[in-house]
Amino acid sequence: METGKAVPGAEIADQRQWYVMRDLKRCNAKLPAYKLLGDMKIEIFTPMVWKLVVRQGKRTLQRVPFMQDLLFVHERRRILDPIVERIGTLQYRFLRDGHRSPMTVDDTEMNRFMQAVASSENPCYYTPGEVTPDMVGRSVRIIGGPFNGLEGRLQKMQGARTRRLFVELPNLLIVSVEVQAEFIELLKK
């Protein structure tokens, strides 16, 4: 074996990346993967929504994952692999490239998405298939306010006084957040 050459993929395994993962536990599991990984002090992001849940005959409002099996984990692959091997219900989502490459999200895109969610009181999530061309309006940039610098497309809403901006993680998830009209700058086509 030659010395001084890096093992292919070793440099990737040593970089923290946002991995797209699946949690195959049931929705009523006491310790879903996002809580388990959070307890391990691993940085995670799970899109959450408020939902009316019935537990032991009582209806309560709870924050639950928008998509039960979707979570984003920011860690090194060499640290995640043993955890995935140990927890049978936690899996990487893979690209359809024939090489079983785990799906990742660029740090900049993920931070932009998380900023949009964190700055919104009522984010609305969509899967890419739920957003139709007639829902999507003009390309805009937000100048000022909590969404300063974000670019995206406005959501068309008949008769609505509020403006909502689509922020997308390509092919994964879209969030619609409310923006103030005075902060909207239209971009040229």
Rank of each mutant, 00 (worst) to 15 (best):
E2C: 04
G4Q: 10
A6V: 10
P8G: 11
E11F: 14
I12W: 08
A13Q: 14
R22M: 04
D23I: 04
D23Q: 07
K25F: 14
N28P: 06
A29T: 11
A33I: 01
L36A: 07
G38H: 14
M40H: 13
K41P: 10
I42P: 07
I42Y: 13
R55Y: 15
K58T: 12
K58L: 04
R59Q: 10
L61F: 14
R63M: 03
P65M: 12
M67R: 03
F72D: 06
E75I: 06
R76I: 11
R78Y: 15
R78W: 15
V84N: 05
E85D: 06
T89P: 04
R93F: 01
R96G: 10
H99Y: 15
V105K: 05
D106N: 12
N111L: 08
R112A: 05
R112H: 13
R112Y: 14
S119W: 09
Y125Q: 04
Y125T: 04
Y125A: 00
Y126I: 01
P128E: 09
G129N: 06
T132W: 11
D134R: 08
S139Q: 11
I142H: 08
L150C: 08
E151N: 09
L154I: 11
A160W: 01
A160L: 03
L165D: 02
E168C: 07
E168K: 05
L172A: 03
L172K: 03
A181V: 14
F183E: 02
